[in-house]
Amino acid sequence: MADKNRGVALVTGGGRGIGKGIAERLLADGMTVVICGRSEPAELPSADGRTAEFEACDVRSAEEVNAMFDRIYARHGRFDLAVNNAGGSPETDAATASPRFSERILQLNLLGPLHVAQAANRIMQTQDEGGSIVNIASVSGARPSPGTAVYGAAKAGLLSLTQSLAMEWGPKVRINAIIVGLVATEAAEEHYGGEDGMKRIGAMLPLGRMARPKDIADVVSFLASDDSAYVSGAQIAVHGGGERPLFLSLAQG
């Protein structure tokens, strides 16, 4: 793909949390960055005096996604990097989850990234430089995910999709996935019981802390650059060494 210092990127769900960190890093790299979401954030990501553009789009709708890509391409005449970051799920018991709930979680976390990838590929295949797609996956897709079973299944599907599309769309388009571990965001602080809870969780990880959005953004920056020109179909774990198996703690009392 083109050098990241002169490319155009889209970060889905780029208005907060991990997505905002990714958008800010890509802006600092010199890319033109577009973020999308169902509503515009109060403050757009910015870095080095440059600010991201915003597109209103529900990635669960293929029609909205294709229309958004047409607008981005009309403005900039190229498209180099798509980061499928939008996703997530509230906790729910799989036994009682409604069909509509499960369908919407699958739409957001698996079908949405597919819609974005297809629209990006449509443009990238016409460019001499091709392009890069980065899927933000999760440890929930690589191990059991009780309480968010459908989300975990969707993220597992995203990992499989990454490998299949990398084979189908090369050599023009490179597609990789980042297996994200526990990340310290505002939402995580609420979920894990505040700063003290996050410190306890961080202490169990080999690197001694939860990830920061910057940790994920740094890997996206690498995958957007020519330094990763021969990396495609990869699953890069950014989880601080992984979670300690519960049985080890139980065995030690």
Rank of each mutant, 00 (worst) to 15 (best):
Q107H: 03
A86V: 00
F79D: 06
Y73V: 15
E103N: 12
T96D: 13
A97P: 10
S89G: 06
S102N: 13
R104N: 14
Y73Q: 14
L108H: 00
L81C: 08
G77P: 05
A95W: 14
A97D: 14
D93E: 11
N109G: 01
N85A: 08
L108K: 01
Q107W: 01
I105Q: 00
P99R: 13
I105C: 02
S89Y: 02
L108I: 02
A82F: 03
H76Y: 09
R78T: 12
A82W: 04
Y73P: 05
E103K: 14
L106K: 09
T92F: 08
Q107S: 11
S89L: 01
A74M: 08
H76I: 00
S98T: 15
R78M: 13
D93H: 07
R100M: 15
P99V: 11
A86G: 01
D93G: 05
L81V: 13
D80G: 05
A94N: 12
S98L: 09
L106G: 11
S98W: 10
G88H: 00
F79L: 09
G88C: 03
N85D: 07
A74E: 14
D93A: 07
T92I: 13
I105T: 09
Y73H: 15
F79R: 06
H76G: 02
A82S: 11
N109R: 01
N85R: 05
S89P: 02
P90K: 06
G87V: 05
P99E: 12
I105A: 01
A97E: 14
N85V: 04
S98H: 08
P99F: 11
F79V: 08
L110M: 02
D80N: 06
H76M: 05
D80T: 03
P99D: 13
A97G: 14
G88P: 04
D80Q: 04
L110K: 00
N109E: 01
D80W: 00
E91F: 10
G88I: 03
N85Y: 06
S102K: 10
D80V: 03
D80F: 02
A97S: 15
R78H: 12
G87C: 07
D93R: 11
V83E: 04
Q107Y: 03
R78E: 13
N109M: 00
E91N: 10
L106M: 15
L110P: 00
G88F: 03
G77C: 08
N85L: 08
D80H: 03
I105N: 01
T92W: 06
L108Y: 00
N109F: 01
R104E: 15
R100F: 12
A86L: 02
L106H: 11
